[in-house]
Design a protein around this nucleic acid. Structure first.
Length: 491
DNA sequence: TTTTGAGTTGTTCGA
DNA sequence: GTCGAACAACTCAAA
């Protein structure tokens, strides 16, 4: 008769928390002391209407590989599966005899529903379930205004949130993770079929290193210099002035508590926090990410429907054959800054934030196409596609969300280009057919003298499109459409 | 309780 | 060339 109790492992269900440090679910499993079975389930059905797009899947592939490598370095490994999470976990529990399940929470409506299902099922099997926050400084339900309602204005939200203490990141309390007696069966990473069949994502590797180690490099590099000039530098798309942490944060390869601690450490000699204006502005951006999750949690229909419901009746323009949408997607609108952004997105899986605002405003206000089309395209093409951030951004751009840009704020693409890409180098990089145009004309080639165009080898309508809409009249039409909406809402 | 002022990222127009 | 106003409506917090 064996006296030792049967060793029943704990399952750690990895999701958007693909890291070993500052991972509370993992730490709790370690604290329990039993063998740990780390698992990732690729389950599209659990994502509702927002199954991961191509760029996101590319990232996930490499991030899972990185996580497995990190786990192997501590004597463990990542079990991979695809299909229904509930079924996978049930099988895993019965084959390993696991009696506990640990995971970190998500905040998208489908993910929340999914968690509830999994918890109910697991508890029904007698499995202990514990969930944690490793994705946000504060969870949506922790923050409310004086009336006990969710904030709908960022500044008020952030004033409130920033006054609360930020928990320090937690370290993995072990150099080895206890392994089960036998490892359960795992799929090969390739079996998840996350990588595109065609090689369109080949260029991504030049720009990105998915995984916690790559994230740490980005944090270090950004805080070593660009952060000091973040206030101005973040608006210049030709420069490495932003942190580029968005995909790492989305997949949880680094968490906001770790970022917060790293920024705090910058001023440790002086005790000044934040150490300079740039650092404070950067932390505000972390705050926007928090706010986006707050808003999505409290307005779960926001990915599909405008939060200001009257916008459901906005008079969008006709787009027979999807010509205009297609031109926007392909970066062939004839507005160089817009086209540069859309091509950067397609080729690198990412777009500079300043340019996101410009192309967003252009789609919704100049082309008057529904913001949902833009949200969907971004969703499919961005490596940092994140339902909370994407939804907030698009509803902000079209003026139909909480704390959104006012309707009359219509970005003028030529002015934006001249202001934030004054050298024209951003356009030159992504729209090479305009590369030989001097800065003076590069943001409005249709205004360039014939000789200048000829010299630069540009033939409008042939080598590069003429503008598909006229700025001044598109602006007038957009303002008229908003006026119409306002009158319709009044009656 | 009511009132008041402020609120991520703009542009245009007229003085 | 610069500068302020206009371009709405609503949320939130402080007075």
């Amino acid at each position: 008769m064996a006296t030792a109790r049967a060793v029943s492992p704990s399952i750690v269900w990895f999701r958007q928390d693909l890291r070993l440090q500052d991972n509370r679910a993992l730490n709790a499993a370690v604290a329990r002391g039993d063998p740990i079975v780390p698992v990732y389930v690729f389950d599209e059905a659990g994502e509702g209407n927002w199954k991961p797009g191509g760029a996101s899947r590319w990232w996930l592939h490499h991030s899972l590989q990185a996580l497995d490598t990190a786990l192997r370095a501590v004597g463990s490994q990542l079990i991979l599966a695809r299909g229904k999470t509930g079924e996978v976990l049930r099988q895993l529990a019965s084959s390993t005899g696991a009696t506990a399940l640990f995971y970190n929470r998500r905040y998208e409506p489908a993910a929340i529903a999914h968690e509830r299902e999994i918890e109910t099922e697991a508890r029904g099997m007698g499995i202990e379930v514990q969930s944690f926050n490793s994705a946000l400084l504060r969870e949506p339900a922790e923050i409310a205004n004086q009336q006990g309602r969710p904030f709908q204005v960022f500044t008020a939200y952030w004033r409130h949130a920033i006054a609360l203490p930020v928990d320090p990141p937690v370290r993995l309390p072990a150099t080895r993770l206890p392994a089960p007696e036998a490892w359960p069966k795992s799929l090969d990473l390739e079996d998840l079929e996350l990588r595109p069949r065609l090689n369109w994502a080949d260029g991504f590797s030049a720009d990105w290193t998915p995984g916690a180690a790559g994230a740490a490099v980005r944090v270090k590099r950004f805080l070593s210099d660009p952060v000091a000039d973040y206030g101005a530098g973040r608006d210049l798309p030709d420069r490495e002035g932003t942190s580029r942490l968005s995909p790492h944060l989305h997949f949880g390869e680094v968490g906001p508590r770790q970022v917060w601690a790293a920024v705090r450490a910058l001023g440790r000699e002086t005790g000044v926090f934040p150490v300079n204006a740039g650092a404070g502005i950067f932390l505000r951006e972390i705050g926007w990410r928090e706010f986006a999750h707050h808003v999505l949690y409290h307005f779960p229909t926001a990915p599909e429907l405008p939060i200001r419901s009257e916008f459901a009746r906005f008079p969008w323009a006709e787009d027979p054959g999807g010509q205009r949408l297609g031109a926007w997607q392909k970066g062939r609108t004839g507005y160089p800054i817009v086209d540069a952004g859309m091509r950067q997105l397609w080729q690198s899986g990412w777009m500079h934030n300043r340019v996101r605002m410009i192309v967003g405003s252009f789609l919704v206000k100049h082309l008057r196409l529904p913001w949902n089309h833009g949200a969907r395209w971004f969703w499919d093409t961005l490596v940092d596609a994140d339902l909370a951030n994407n939804t907030l951004g698009w509803q902000w751009s079209s003026g139909c969300g909480v704390d959104a840009a006012p309707y009359f704020r219509i970005f003028a693409p030529v002015l934006q280009g001249r202001k934030f890409d004054s050298s024209g180098d951003y356009v030159r990089r992504w729209v090479p057919e305009l590369a030989r145009l001097p800065a003076e004309w590069i943001h409005a080639p249709w205004e360039a003298p014939t000789a200048v165009l000829a010299q630069a080898g540009v033939r409008l309508g042939e080598t590069y499109p003429a503008p598909i809409v006229d700025h001044a009249s598109a602006r007038r039409d957009a303002l008229a459409a908003f006026k119409k909406l306002r009158e319709a809402s009044r009656s």
